[in-house]
Computed example of a mutant assay.
Amino acid sequence: MASRLLTSALFAGFCTGLIAALLQFVFVQPVLLHAELYESGQLVHFGAEPVSAHPDLGGIDVMRDALSVLFSALVYTGYALVLVALMSLAEASGAKITARTGLIWGIAGFVAVHFAPAISLPPEVPGVAAADVVARQVWWFATVAATGVALALIAFARSWAAWAVAVVLLLAPHLIGAPHPDSFAGTVPPELAAMFASRALGVGLAAWVVLGCLAGHFWQREGLRQNAAA
Rank of each mutant, 00 (worst) to 15 (best):
Leu169His: 09
Leu169Cys: 02
Leu169Trp: 08
Leu169Ala: 09
Leu169Arg: 12
Leu170Met: 12
Leu171Ala: 15
Leu171Ile: 15
Leu171His: 04
Ala172Met: 12
Ala172Trp: 12
Ala172Asn: 01
Ala172Leu: 13
Pro173Thr: 04
Pro173Met: 12
Pro173Arg: 15
His174Met: 10
His174Cys: 06
Leu175Asp: 01
Leu175Trp: 15
Leu175Asn: 10
Leu175Glu: 05
Ile176Arg: 04
Ile176Ser: 08
Gly177Trp: 15
Gly177Gln: 11
Gly177Ala: 03
Ala178Asp: 02
Ala178His: 06
Pro179Lys: 10
Pro179Leu: 06
Pro179Gly: 13
His180Leu: 14
Pro181Met: 15
Pro181Ala: 07
Pro181Ser: 00
Asp182Ala: 08
Asp182Tyr: 13
Asp182Ser: 15
Ser183Gln: 10
Ser183Val: 09
Ser183Leu: 08
Phe184Tyr: 14
Phe184Ile: 15
Phe184Ala: 14
Phe184Leu: 12
Phe184Lys: 07
Ala185Arg: 12
Ala185Pro: 02
Ala185Asn: 12
Gly186Tyr: 14
Gly186Lys: 10
Gly186Met: 09
Gly186Arg: 07
Thr187Pro: 04
Thr187Val: 10
Val188Ile: 14
Val188Pro: 09
Val188Arg: 06
Val188Met: 14
Pro189Gln: 03
Pro189Arg: 04
Pro189Asp: 04
Pro190Gly: 03
Glu191Tyr: 15
Glu191Pro: 05
Glu191His: 05
Glu191Val: 02
Leu192Gln: 01
Leu192Arg: 01
Ala193Ile: 05
Ala194Met: 11
Ala194Ile: 04
Ala194Tyr: 07
Met195His: 14
Met195Val: 07
Met195Tyr: 06
Met195Pro: 06
Phe196His: 13
Ala197Ser: 14
Ala197Gln: 14
Ala197Glu: 13
Ala197Met: 11
Ala197Tyr: 02
Ser198Lys: 03
Ser198Asn: 10
Ser198Thr: 09
Arg199Gly: 02
Arg199Asp: 07
Leu201Pro: 09
Leu201His: 05
Gly202His: 06
Val203Arg: 07
Val203Asn: 05
Val203Ile: 00
Gly204Ala: 07
Gly204Val: 06
Leu205Arg: 03
Leu205Cys: 10
Ala206Pro: 08
Ala206Thr: 05
Ala206Ile: 11
Ala207Trp: 01
Ala207Tyr: 00
Ala207Thr: 00
Ala207Arg: 01
Trp208Met: 15
Trp208Pro: 01
Trp208Asp: 07
Trp208Phe: 09
Val209Glu: 07
Val209Ser: 04
Val209Thr: 05
Val210Thr: 06
Val210Cys: 09
Val210Gln: 00
Leu211Asp: 13
Leu211Pro: 04
Leu211Cys: 14
Leu211His: 05
Gly212Tyr: 01
Gly212Asn: 02
Cys213Gln: 05
Cys213Arg: 05
Cys213Ser: 07
Cys213Leu: 06
Cys213Asn: 02
Leu214Ile: 02
Leu214Thr: 00
Leu214Arg: 00
Leu214Gln: 01
Ala215Asp: 11
Gly216Cys: 04
Gly216Arg: 05
